[in-house]
């Protein structure tokens, strides 16, 4: 599609109870957000294995977002604490790998925070548009 602006591919892992609800609310509240997002619903942010994130990058994601309930609000007691521990570790790995830190982000979004969700996606998309396509993106994938 010549002439059209490059649109990044952003993979967001959303937990079923909070951030997925947040994405829903964003839609219901008609908050404008870019079409760059691909949501993967997981039951809890504690389900997200660092491996999933790396695999997303290798499959062509320009950015990966890890989202979940606010700390203390997890429906499975401490799933988001587990996600946080893994995220901190994962962040170091991604930095050491040489990927820009903006390509991996963590945010806690509750089901009622539709506007926060939309703003978050908008911000990330703007950041990634500046950075350009991910260096790990395979050839032939745009």
């Amino acid at each position: 599609m010549a002439g059209t602006e490059w649109e990044p591919k952003i993979v967001a892992f959303c937990c079923n109870w909070c951030s997925y609800g947040g994405a829903d609310t964003a839609g219901m509240g008609r908050f404008q957000q870019p079409s760059s997002l691909r949501i993967i619903r997981v039951m809890c942010s504690g389900r997200i294995d660092p491996m999933h994130v790396f695999n997303a990058f290798l499959e062509g994601a320009d950015a990966v977002l890890v989202t979940g309930c606010h700390l203390g609000d997890c429906h499975y007691v401490n799933g988001n604490y587990k996600a946080q521990v893994r995220y901190q570790f994962l962040e170091e790995m991604v930095r050491e790998l040489g990927l820009e830190p903006e390509r991996l982000q963590l945010n806690w979004i509750s089901a009622s925070e539709g506007e926060k969700f939309a703003n978050f996606i908008r911000d990330v998309t703007a950041q990634i548009k500046q950075l350009g396509p991910s260096p790990l993106k395979p050839e032939g994938v745009n």
């Binding site: 491996m51 290798l58 790995m93 790990l136 395979p138």
Partner: peptide, 26 residues
């Protein structure tokens, strides 16, 4: 987990096998 990614199809730009091992062994 790491040996599940031995297929070339999983290793477009970089070896996923080694990435999983890096995560596991750091």
């Amino acid at each position: 987990k790491c040996t599940m990614f031995h297929s070339l199809a999983d290793n477009y730009k970089m070896s996923m096998y080694h990435m999983v091992r890096l995560l596991h062994l750091s």
